[in-house]
Structures are given as C-alpha cells and as structure tokens.
Design a protein around this nucleic acid. Structure first.
Lengths: 334, 334
DNA sequence: TTGTACGCGTTATCAC
DNA sequence: GTGATAACGCGTACAA
C-alpha cells in the first residue's frame, strides 16, 4: 500500500505538499495540485485515516452503547445517531450492553482505548463510578434515553414520568380502576422505574389505591409480555387494563390475552410505550406513548459532536416531547 | 494522557518492557511486572489501541454495511456479527446504504480509509467494479444475505429461490391459483429477484400461467405493503393470496386487507419472508419463510475473521437452511 | 507557494 | 529477561 511519501516522490513534491492537497487543496498551486492528484492515481494511493487520527488525536469515531440493537426502539435512535454522525464526518462503533452494567463498563473501556472521540450511552445504572470517571477525565459523552434532567452529565431523553402518567390517565379516563403494570426490571432500566412512578402518581391523583399485586416485572420481549399478561389474568383479582412499559411487551401481552380467549379492548385494554414502527400495524393496533426515537438519536449526536468540537456551553439537558397515541387496543371499561 | 513512556520512566524500565507487560505478561519477571502495573496505576495509564493499530496495521475493526439497521432482519444479523466479532476482539463499525449503491460504494471507501480489517456487505448491486476492486486488492470481505453461490467472492446467505418456491408452493397447496407477489425492487435487491424466480418456477411446475399483472413492486416498509395490497384488491382480477418478499411488507399487507374489510385468511391469504421476531405476535400471526438471521450474522463474521487471520482456504459459500412456518395468515382458497 | 524535520504511542528487531 | 531504537503514515511548525 502506497503512502504520501510514494506520492510525493512520484510528483516531485514534498510530503507536506501532498498532505496539503488532501486537507486544504486551495493552499496549493493548481498545477502542482494536479500533478499530485495524478501521482495519487498512478500509485493507487489510499488515504490512511488511522494514521491521521494518530497524529491529530481525533479518530472521528463515536462509540454508541445501547442495551441491544435488536430492540426496534434502539435501532431507530441508532439510525438517528448514525445519520448525524456521518453527516459530520464521524463513524459509529456499536456496542450492546444487554442491560448489564458490567458489559456497559467494559464497552466504555474498550471504546476509550480505541480513542473514540466521544460516547453516547443508554445506560442502565447511574450509580457506578464509571460515569463519574468520564466526567473527571472530561471525556465527551452524552446520556441517551436519559432520565437525568440536571447536573453535570449532558443528556437527551423524554419525561418518562409524564409518559407513565399519560398512559395511566388514558386508562382511568376509560373508566378503568384496576390497572396493572408490566414493567421492565427497575434495576436494569431507570426509565421503567420513572414510568412506574408516573403510573403511581396518576393513580393517586385519581384516588385509586396502589396495589403492589398489580406490578409485574418482565424482560423486554414479546414472549415475556405474553407470560406476564397470563399471570395477571390468572390472579385472584385481575386488572381490566394493563400498562406495559414498552411496545414489545405490549404486543406480547396482546397475544397472551388472545391465547386466554380475551377480546381486546372488550375484555382487557393494553397500552404500550415507544410507538415503534409496527405498533400501528398489529391487530388490534396498539395504543401507546410515542417517543421520538430517531429524533432523540439525532439530537443526541448533535449535542455530543458539539461537545467534542468544543462548541458546547454548559451541559445540555434536552427533554423531547412525548404524546399519547390512542388506537384500538384500549377501550372503555364495561 | 500518559503513555507507555511515562510508565516506563516511573517503573525504571524501558518502553519495550511495558509493552511486554501489556501484550505478553508471562515473558516478564513477576517482580518487574508488578512494578510496571503499579506505575500504570499511579499515572493512570490508558492503553492506546489506535497507536497499536497504526504499527501492527491491524485495527481489529470490522465494517458492516447493511441497507438499514431499521429493518429488524438486519438488526438481528448485525447482532450476530457483533457477538462473534467482540468475542474475537473486534469492534464493528456500522454503515447504512439505504439500498443505494452509491452510498454503498462510499461506505466501502470510508471504511477502507479507516483501515478496517475486513468488510461484511449486504449488497444491492453486484455488477459494479467495487467488489472486483476489493478482490483485486485482496481485501478481506464477505457478502451477507448473498445470492452468490460460487466464484471468488466469499458469501453467506440462504437459497432465496427455494424460499420463493416454498412460499408459493404452500399457497398452491391451499388451492390458490391466483397468487400475487409484492416484491422489493429487483434493482435494489437481488434477493427479491431470486424469490420472484422461485415464485415463477413454482407456478410453472404447477401449470399456473404467470401473470405479470400479479407482480407489484414496493419499498420494504409496512406502509408500502399496505398500499400494495390495496392496489391488488382494486385490480380487475385480484389475487386470492399474496406472497410478500419480506415480513414488513406482509404486516402492512395484512393491515391493508383489514382496511378493505377483508378477512384473513378467509378472504385473502398473506405469506411473508424472514420470520422476524414479531411475526408470531401479530394478529393473525404471520405465515412466513424463516431465515436464520442471527446465525447468518454469526457465520458471516466467523468466516470473515478466518479470512482476516489467514485461516481461510478457498472462498466459502454457505447456504443456511430456511423453512416454511405456517401460521394463521394463510388458509385454503374457498 | 513549497520543503524540512520532528513528533504522535506503540510494536518489533535486535542486542545485551 | 530486558533495553535501545527504528519503524509505522501522517500533520504541522517553521523555514525558505
């Protein structure tokens, strides 16, 4: 593989000139520029971005850590991150934490060793010292899908508390009084935790006693949602409506109800969270809380790049809008 | 940021020894090893993998090019690639081509400039000289979801022709004679093209005349599937069954039928392709052709790493098994 | 406008 | 078992 030195020799210029042709072509006389371009062609020169990164100490790479790319919600935000990153000359390295904080910590280490210019993290545990280390090192990073709203850690997210509140309010408005919640494990996802708080608060505001029997934990998969719903139905005093803390759970729950011979929303109402692409295409279509995942990725990447490039002021804390999308999976309690 | 030189000074050893402690600790006396470890701690040393890559000419990075991470099928295979890559010390850079060969070509360039050790490409156009260039440069790469079965280009995929044949055969067995196909654009996806060939061949083998009116092209989205199905229904002589060339289309088609007031499978049968995670959770659950996407990613990454590390013999051509998964969206023609 | 020369952090090749 | 030192390919003062 040829280097700028080869090109330089071939074009009878110095390596500095070749470098200039690559990075600031305007600073070089058109004639020599042409000569260099020709030389690059004849020796099939390929630019080595790694070597550049080595000297400039900028890899133009962003590390993106998410629970798993397999969840459509994170695919969407990943796409948003990528689009903004690429538009700004950055590439994205992807890492899955599987909701395990050890994997998360390991990924942060690996990515930093690889000299990524910054990190976007959808974290599962804020207690560790890992994030504090990043802060101490003044390493550029940003929390995505974050529940953090103030402090030194930059973040982009939605108001999960509000989401839980909206979902529950919708069900209460439909005359439901016995409302279950199928939630992701709190220790793995503080988002789920905040949604639960919104749920509880809304119950309280409507004079409905909170019943711990109506909280069930599940993994974020349809299968788990299906099982969870069946457990609810088989309880002594089953709910008439269930708030699932994401759409994958909700879709599983719908299937679970179906398998138990229950009509939706006639016998039981189901509401999800996320509004992933297929939420409107399942049958019955899914009532859910929409969060702008793609946009979240975009804005997260924009904010991170600002930090990386020194254009940022004090830590940003963006809270994107969410909204209730009423569809067919919820109906009046009869 | 401290370097091995700082560590070396602090531990009173040479940089070579520090490097040894990092890469082959057994080759260094335990006592000095300890001294070095301590020195690394006191000056908060962080290993620079970029610098290593620069000298070893191995970045331990794989470039993965897919149409879009937003399609669950590609999320799954991406996960497979990542799992194998990470287990072998590689990281994955992700690029979306959006089914555009120019973007694909640009990504290949960018990734090569970044000195990725190899590429995994789910390509959309094999005609270009781009892949031939890779071959000429002896650059490690592999085609995923590939229809290529022989020749110098290593590939992992499934038999899409067979898939199309199986899907069509299933419908014919259910007494359907007028079978439509909702297909991804052939020029963007040779996979779709091969499925169509399987479809045609199966019709022929069953003495059913091929009717070009029964081929409709669509983008790989539920919305497009929905529109496509409506167009079919509004035709003079509509099909009684539709083979969609992926599940996203099929889910959209089901919704389209529903909006037209048609019962599934009573009024019209729908079969998809992929068996993505939620295929069994939509209602009616989706009959489809299952392809092992996660496993495809795994095997692709394994094969690529073999090539990178010089363990490969002649180009591999793996064809993974596919199978018909009959569910509720298809039924007998009445 | 162009060239010279050094440095970036690590590994690898010799010696010792 | 350890040390000295030359690469690796590029950017960038500084000089011309």
């Amino acid at each position: 593989m040829s280097t700028i030195l080869d090109v330089a020799k071939l074009a009878n210029v110095s390596t500095a000139t070749v470098s200039r042709v690559i990075n600031s072509p305007d600073n070089v006389r058109p004639k020599t520029r042409e000569r260099v371009y020709r030389a690059m062609k004849t020796c099939r020169y390929k630019y080595n971005a790694l070597a550049r990164g080595f000297v400039t100490k900028r890899s133009h790479t962003i590390g993106l850590i998410i629970p798993t790319i397999t969840n459509p919600v994170f695919s969407e935000s990943t796409r948003g991150v990528q689009d903004v990153a690429n538009a700004n000359g950055y590439q994205v390295i992807l890492g899955n934490s599987d909701y395990q904080s050890e994997k998360e910590a390991a990924l942060i280490e690996v990515f930093r060793e690889r000299q990524v210019d910054g990190l976007i993290i959808t974290t599962t545990n804020l207690k560790g010292n890992i994030l504090k280390n990043l802060l101490d090192d003044e390493f550029p990073y940003l929390l995505l899908y974050s529940t953090v709203r103030k402090g030194p850690m930059p973040s982009v997210g939605v108001d999960n508390f509000l989401g839980g509140y909206l979902a529950t309010g919708h069900l209460i408005q439909l005359k439901h009084r016995r409302i279950g919640m199928l939630a992701g494990e709190f220790r793995f996802s503080d988002r789920s935790f905040h949604r639960w708080h919104g749920y509880k608060k809304c119950l309280k505001d409507n004079q409905i006693a909170y019943d711990p029997e109506l909280l069930l934990h599940a993994r974020y998969t349809p299968v788990s949602g299906c099982k969870g719903l069946k457990r609810f139905i088989n309880a002594k005093n089953p709910p008439t409506a269930v708030f699932c803390s994401n759409d994958l759970l909700a879709i599983g729950a719908i299937e679970g109800a179906r398998q138990m011979g229950l009509g939706i929303p006639h016998d039981i109402s189901i509401i999800g969270f996320d509004d992933m692409q297929i939420a409107s295409f399942v049958s019955p279509s899914l009532t859910t809380i929409r969060q702008p995942t793609y946009e979240m990725g975009r804005q997260g990447a924009e904010a991170l790049i600002d930090i990386i490039e020194g254009k940022a002021g004090k830590p940003v804390h963006k809270l994107l809008d969410i909204s209730l999308i009423p569809r067919e999976s919820t109906g009046a309690n009869t």
